[in-house]
Amino acid sequence: TTVKVNGTKYKFDTPEEAQKFAKKAADKYNLKVVVDGDDLRVE
C-alpha cells in the first residue's frame, strides 16, 4: 500500500500502517485522506 503526500510516495507493508500514517499526515497538514484504489492520497 502506498500513501502519497505532497507528491512523495511512502510504501507500507500493511494497509493499517498506511492508514495510520495517512491520518497523521492529514491531521498535520490539515488535509484529508483520499482512497485511490488500493492506495491512499493525502490532499
Rank of each mutant, 00 (worst) to 15 (best):
1 T>Q: 06
1 T>R: 08
1 T>G: 04
1 T>P: 05
1 T>A: 06
1 T>N: 07
2 T>R: 03
2 T>V: 12
2 T>H: 06
2 T>I: 12
2 T>L: 07
2 T>C: 13
2 T>Q: 05
3 V>T: 00
3 V>C: 01
4 K>W: 15
5 V>C: 02
5 V>N: 01
6 N>R: 09
6 N>F: 15
6 N>H: 12
7 G>E: 05
7 G>C: 11
8 T>Y: 13
8 T>I: 15
8 T>R: 14
8 T>E: 09
9 K>L: 15
9 K>P: 10
9 K>H: 12
9 K>T: 15
10 Y>R: 02
10 Y>G: 00
10 Y>H: 05
11 K>L: 12
12 F>T: 00
12 F>K: 01
12 F>Y: 02
13 D>Y: 06
13 D>E: 11
13 D>T: 09
13 D>W: 05
14 T>V: 03
14 T>S: 10
14 T>H: 05
14 T>E: 03
15 P>V: 11
15 P>D: 04
15 P>Y: 14
15 P>H: 09
15 P>E: 07
15 P>K: 11
16 E>G: 08
17 E>C: 08
17 E>Y: 02
17 E>N: 06
17 E>A: 11
17 E>D: 09
18 A>H: 00
19 Q>D: 07
19 Q>N: 07
20 K>A: 14
20 K>E: 15
20 K>M: 13
20 K>Y: 11
21 F>I: 01
21 F>V: 02
22 A>W: 02
22 A>N: 00
23 K>M: 11
23 K>A: 11
24 K>S: 13
24 K>V: 11
24 K>D: 15
24 K>T: 13
24 K>Y: 14
25 A>G: 02
25 A>P: 01
25 A>D: 03
25 A>W: 15
26 A>Q: 04
27 D>Y: 09
28 K>D: 10
28 K>S: 07
28 K>V: 08
28 K>W: 13
29 Y>P: 05
29 Y>H: 10
30 N>H: 11
30 N>E: 07
30 N>D: 10
30 N>Y: 07
30 N>A: 08
30 N>F: 07
31 L>G: 15
31 L>P: 03
32 K>F: 10
32 K>R: 11
33 V>F: 05
33 V>P: 02
33 V>L: 06
33 V>Q: 02
33 V>K: 00
34 V>R: 07
34 V>N: 05
34 V>L: 09
34 V>M: 09
35 V>R: 10
35 V>W: 13
35 V>Y: 13
35 V>I: 13
36 D>V: 10
36 D>T: 05
36 D>C: 12
37 G>K: 05
38 D>T: 11
38 D>H: 10
38 D>P: 12
38 D>V: 09
39 D>N: 10
39 D>Q: 10
39 D>G: 13
41 R>V: 15
41 R>E: 06
41 R>A: 10
41 R>D: 04
42 V>E: 03
42 V>W: 03
42 V>L: 15
43 E>D: 11
43 E>T: 09
43 E>W: 06
43 E>P: 03
43 E>Y: 09
43 E>N: 05
